[in-house]
Amino acid sequence: MLNDILLDLYDSHSFFNRRHIISKIIVTLLLFISLFFVRSYISLLFYLLVLILLIFLSNIPISLYLRLLWQGKCFYIVLYLIYLLCGINPLNSAIMVLRIVFFIVLIFLLVFTTSYQELICGIERILKPLSLIHIDTKAISFSTFLGLQFIPMYLDELYHIKKIMKLRKGKKRTSFQFLIRQIKMLVKNAFYKTISKMEQLSHIMEIRLYSTKAHKTYYQEMRFTCYDGLFITAILLVFILLVLKETIL
């Protein structure tokens, strides 16, 4: 799995990796909400700088993020064209597409630096108040966890299938029909393989005695330190600045 492979290869002692899961989730949510306040060049640049800093703090090479993001280039172009067709001006369409790209990067940041159990445990804790009104928070947190894993896994599958297609490219010039076939196979097969891997992942979780009916679903807990508090405060400031920039200033 992408997450396991990365945690084995990359520095799991990076600043981002060592943060408490609650702080990571709160920071991700704050940054996600801030995306809706990114409407101008300056906010865009500021947001991008914050993201680059967080990528740097995760100690995972930026080339990995770029490699995965690049697999969705056709999707970004189609989205941009749809926005243009809906009458949105080119600049705003570009900003809207960039917001989606930033959202994907946020998911990467969270998923690449957090183990499965930690992530599920964190989401469960955040949703715990809902259990008072008898909502099955464990099932929701497990589904959310699988949903978060989907985009990185799908982009990774796209990358690998494209790589094999490129290596086994027979014809020097491909016909339009064959190109359509390639695209259909790429999108469909990557999707199927991702779903199949996620199914395997959920089986593995069950084998490791994770159950939505069980009382305890985590076995390891990190302490919430002052660095986590500072981290949340710093991102909260970013959020406030973006809101102020777009509303009052």
């Binding site: 690998h160 299938i161 094999i164 297609m165 196979m185 469909k188 097969n189 199927y192 393989k193």
Partner: peptide
């Protein structure tokens, strides 16, 4: 073999 195949079925 996870990164060997393009198709889902043998025929594909």
């Amino acid at each position: 073999l996870d990164y060997q195949f393009i198709g889902l079925t043998v025929e594909e």
